[in-house]
């Protein structure tokens, strides 16, 4: 049996926050194995969009379909299908790295041998071995991001949602993150990542969507060598607001 190619579909998704529209009429489609870069200036609506996709925030208009099923009707679907790394990798400071992985696994429904296997896989893949017994509260920003990523990937989600994952990472860590994203996409995981950094998008994404004032202003595929074109496009949209 082959899985349907389309994994995520946003149909006119909207959401108000603090009394103003944060996202308006957003429609997007993401297929398995695709990497979509969500670009936008601060306050463009990227984090709100990702929170809605991750199931942490309900849209107040439109629909979000995950694997063909409306998230509003089946919010528990995200438990199995989505792995989410929010912007600041929220961790429990008093728990160790190993305890985080166990807790996230159990919360995602993993137990016994499956949990142990998943934990070992993530510890090896994200090189968390030396940190396993360290408290999350004393980790560096890069280490926190790695732990957050490991927690998001633990249950092998079909959709990986990353909110500015490259923040505060050094160049070596950024390269490792890009490698991980490409590896996940090659394995069939759909990835959606929000960022301010254009280079990050051109380096790992197949497609790009530019959000501005909560609306989708541009969507297109990336050929790999059109960084300059994307930069022009992005600045045209971003400075249009400044001019307005």
């Amino acid at each position: 049996m082959t899985l349907p190619q389309t994994l995520l579909k946003l149909e006119q998704a909207s959401r108000r926050r603090a009394g103003r529209p944060a996202v308006q009429g957003l429609s997007l489609v993401l297929e398995r194995g695709q990497v979509l870069g969500l670009l936008g200036v601060n306050g463009a609506g990227k984090s709100t969009t990702l929170s809605m996709i991750a199931g942490a925030l309900a849209p107040d208009g439109g629909h979000i379909l995950l694997d063909g099923v409306d998230l509003a009707e089946h919010p528990a679907l995200v438990r199995r299908l989505v792995g989410w790394l929010p912007e600041r990798a929220p961790l429990w400071q008093e728990l160790t790295v190993g305890e985080h992985l166990d807790a996230h696994g159990r919360l995602r429904g993993l137990n016994g041998a499956a949990l142990k296997q998943a934990r070992t896989r993530m510890v090896e893949r994200l090189e968390l071995g030396p940190l396993e017994r360290r408290l999350a509260g004393v980790l560096s920003q890069g280490q926190r991001q790695r732990l957050g990523l490991a927690c998001a990937l633990l249950h092998q989600p079909a959709l990986l949602v990353l909110d500015e994952p490259g923040n505060a990472l050094d160049p070596v860590q950024v390269a490792a993150l890009r490698g991980l994203i490409r590896e996940q996409a090659a394995a069939g995981t759909a990835v959606i990542l929000s960022t301010h950094v254009l280079a990050e998008v051109t380096a790992v994404c197949d497609r790009v969507a530019i959000l501005h004032d909560g609306t989708l202003r541009y969507e297109g595929t990336l050929a790999g060598d059109d960084h300059a074109a994307l930069e022009r496009q992005f600045f045209a949209i971003a400075t249009a607001r400044a001019a307005a």
């Binding site: 929170s51 199931g55 919010p75 679907l77 995200v78 438990r79 989410w84 929010p86 919360l107």
Partner: peptide, 11 residues
């Protein structure tokens, strides 16, 4: 921000 994370786990 951990309550949103828990809700984002489908709990």
């Amino acid at each position: 921000g951990r309550l949103a994370l828990l809700l984002g786990m489908g709990l």
